[in-house]
Design a protein around this nucleic acid. Structure first.
Lengths: 328, 328
DNA sequence: GACGCTCATGGAATCGTTTCCATGGAAACG
DNA sequence: CGTTTCCATGGAAACGATTCCATGAGCGTC
């Protein structure tokens, strides 16, 4: 593989000149410019990113650590973040914590040795020592989706209160009073915020305040199914169910089907925080709050670049919209 | 941020010795070993990966280029590949072509400057110049899922013929003779193989050979919906539909619902190549061939590392299994 | 007791860039 | 015409690791 030295020799200029042409870092005469570019093309020159990063002590790489890449919310977010970063000349190193704090730490270590220029973090749990040392080394960090106690970084997240308000309005319009709420682990700020907003608003929307209708799982299908079963086993027969993210909704529907007859289950309306394609095929179709995962990804990258380049950054909440699939 | 030189000074040894301890590349005395490790811990030393990569001219990074990270098949594959790579001491740089050849090329360029040690490729289209130059530079490459004319690289893919055989058997057992086949672009080897296997086997499985039942889309929901509508508009009333990947199946179901009454549509059985969770909630539930996306990812990484380390590698097909959700 | 061998270590070269500094020539200005 | 200014360029240092080479200590053997 040819180096910049080869290019310079072939072009008949000094090595420094070739570098200046190829990186565009300083003015060069049209003459040497042309010769260097020609030589580079002939030799099929590809810049060595590792050498460049070493010398400049920056890599133009951003680290993105997500909870679970197989969750559509995160894969869409990652996709959007990647595109935005690329548009701005950065590469994204994507890491998948798989909802596991130990694995998250492992990736943070890799990020550190790879010398990323900034970190987009969707946290798994509390601040780890590994994360602390990254922050201590003055690495720019932004948080996605979930906030994190003890870490003062800009947050780009869903407007949970606004989204829950949409759900409450929908429930009220459709005349539901017996509504089951299947939440997530309140250790996560997302779950906590959604639950708080729901509890605060239910009474004013004519919804029963019976807490036997409230339960929570683990943000995954199995835990949510168990929670749904607990609600039903308390003798409650809700006319609607609110699932607090997509896997939770999936689990809740499984729970309904398991305890109730097909006819009974088909009479329960379901609404979800976080929308996916297949909701239209459920019986009855499931309505949902659509989260702007892509926009969170884009805003996160933009915010991180601002941080890197020393501009002021403030947290942003992204508004949601309602996808109403109710039949009548 | 501290360097290996700082560590060496603090430990009172030469820079070379510190390197030998920290990289474990040569024997060192227990004494200096202990002192270096202690110094490294005290200084919070993190190896500079860019310097290391420059000197060793290898990065321990693998490039993974997928068609669409939002497709569950690829996100599961990517996840598994990443885990396997990490287990073997490599990092994965994930790139998302977004079903776009130009973007794929852009990422191949980035891979080249980042000096990846090997490439896992799920191709978008024909061999591009960019890809050609990577191959010419002797970069180890393995193909995932789709083969590629003109590129001689090991392929790790689904056993399409075996999967289609499962579908044919299922259709026969359930007594279907009028079966609509919604395929994909035959420029992709996956689509071509599945179609060929279906056409070859249908007659012996008692399925009508009327080609008005056959159509194809673009592997995405919208194209498949259009294809489904064309079949119906030719006056065919299939009792079963075979969708050749997940988005295709989704589109086909949409097509059915659009042309037929709810009752009629609910009478059509659907079977899909590639399984996802929500199929259990469709009416009637959708059966599917389950592809071992995770295994393809793992095998791909293992094969690529074999290639990198000079061991012989041969292509592998991964067997599928049937998830039968038929009600009766 | 001399010789040879092993083995840990110090010191220096090296990887491929970017960037600093000095230089020389051309242009600009009085 | 002489002096200053500007600008493109050549050459070399620097980034932070790995690795080669030479050296010297320690040890076993004849």
């Amino acid at each position: 593989m040819s180096t910049i030295k080869d290019v310079a020799e072939r072009a008949g200029v000094a090595l420094g000149t070739a570098s200046r042409v190829l990186s565009g870092s300083a003015q060069t005469s049209p003459e040497s410019r042309a010769r260097v570019l020609a030589a580079a093309a002939e030799l099929n020159y590809v810049r060595n990113g590792t050498a460049r990063a070493l010398r400049r002590s920056r890599t133009d790489v951003l680290g993105l650590l997500v909870s679970d890449i197989r969750n559509p919310f995160f894969s869409e977010l990652a996709h959007a973040a990647e595109r935005e970063a690329m548009r701005r000349g950065y590469t994204v190193l994507l890491a998948n914590a798989n909802e596991d704090a130990a694995q998250a730490d492992e990736y943070l270590r890799i990020f550190a040795t790879q010398r990323i220029d900034g970190l987009l973090l969707s946290p798994q749990g509390p601040v780890s020592p590994q994360l602390e040392s990254l922050v201590a080394s003055r690495l720019p960090v932004v948080l996605l989706n979930r906030s994190l106690d003890g870490l003062d970084a800009p947050l780009f997240a869903t407007d949970n209160a606004q989204g829950v308000a949409l759900v409450l309005d929908w429930l009220q319009v459709r005349g539901h009073t017996e509504v089951a709420f299947i939440g997530g682990p309140t250790a996560f700020s997302t779950a906590a915020e959604r639950k708080a907003a729901y509890l605060a608003g239910r009474e004013s929307h004519g919804i029963s305040v019976d807490d036997r209708l409230i339960d929570e799982g683990d943000f995954l299908a199995d835990g949510a199914e168990a929670a749904m079963l607990r609600v039903l086993d308390r003798g409650k027969r809700p006319t609607a169910v609110f699932g607090v993210n997509e896997p939770t909704t999936l689990g809740a529907v499984r729970g309904l089907r398991r305890r109730l007859s097909v006819v009974e289950a088909a009479r329960v309306e379901v609404i979800s925080f976080d929308d996916v394609d297949w909701f239209e095929f459920a019986t009855p179709p499931i309505s949902a709050v659509r989260i702007g995962a892509a926009e969170i990804g884009r805003l996160g990258v933009a915010g991180l670049l601002d941080l890197i380049e020393g501009r002021p950054v403030s947290s942003r909440r992204v508004a949601t919209s309602l996808v109403d699939r109710a039949l009548s």
